[in-house]
Amino acid sequence: MRKIAIAGAGGFSKEIYLTINDINKIEEKWEFIGFFDDNVPKGKFFMDFRVLGNMNDLNQAREEIDVIIAAGKSHNIISILKKLYSDKLTFPNLFHPSCQFLHFKSLVIGVGNILQPYSSLSADNKIGNYNVFNAGVRVGHDTVIGNYNTFATSTLISGGVEIGDQNDFGMNSGILQYKKVGNGNVIAPMSVLFKSIKDSGHYMGIPAMSTGM
């Protein structure tokens, strides 16, 4: 088994730990070693483990370790990733056993992505790196997703959508088919995009409109 650690010791880290456990119940794939966090004291108990140190401690690994970045927002993913520079660290995709891949053969996917329980990907999806798909996220056919995006619980992405980098979709949000999303946007919970949007906006409502923030 490969060793695996979680970068982060917050609420989302608990869910990631449970996903690793569920994977190991089906196939003993990883030996979980613990959590690392810059803001939680070393030695503090978290779940069933002690926090082993901060990101710099993780960089001191003498053997290969798989690392899952447990962060629910795009800027936090990037912030943690910038601190992890050791060539001993690798960033696998983490797929909960309950995820659905309607046509895995046509899926193109990078590294460091997280698919939580009951999320699903359809046919001919292209997904970059370090995206977070929380529980119940649905991605339609022919959708292209960049890097560092987060999709909160029950986000619905229709077919043919193109999404750039560093976008945060709130719980129960969505986007209609064949629309485009630029970079650095925030889509509020319960909001649905009816049209394409560019960069660095905040959107809310049905249909989602810019809040001017």
Rank of each mutant, 00 (worst) to 15 (best):
K3F: 01
A5K: 07
G8T: 09
G8S: 03
A9Y: 00
G11E: 10
E15F: 06
I16V: 13
I16N: 04
K25Y: 08
I26M: 13
I26C: 11
I26P: 00
K29D: 05
W30D: 08
F32C: 09
G34P: 01
F35C: 13
F36S: 01
V40A: 10
P41C: 05
K42I: 12
F46W: 07
D48P: 09
V51C: 02
L52S: 08
D57K: 15
E64F: 14
K73Y: 11
I80Q: 01
K83I: 04
L84T: 04
D87W: 12
L89P: 02
P92C: 07
F95Q: 04
P97F: 04
C99P: 08
L102K: 09
F104H: 14
V108G: 06
G110W: 07
V111G: 11
P117V: 12
L121W: 04
S122V: 01
D124L: 14
Y130W: 13
G136S: 01
G136V: 02
I145G: 03
G146H: 05
N147D: 15
A152Y: 13
L156D: 10
E162W: 13
N167C: 09
D168H: 15
I175E: 08
I175M: 09
L176M: 15
Q177N: 08
K179F: 03
K180T: 09
G182Q: 09
N185L: 05
I187S: 08
A188R: 11
V192A: 15
F194E: 07
D199F: 13
Y203V: 09
G205E: 04
T211Y: 03
G212V: 07
G212P: 07
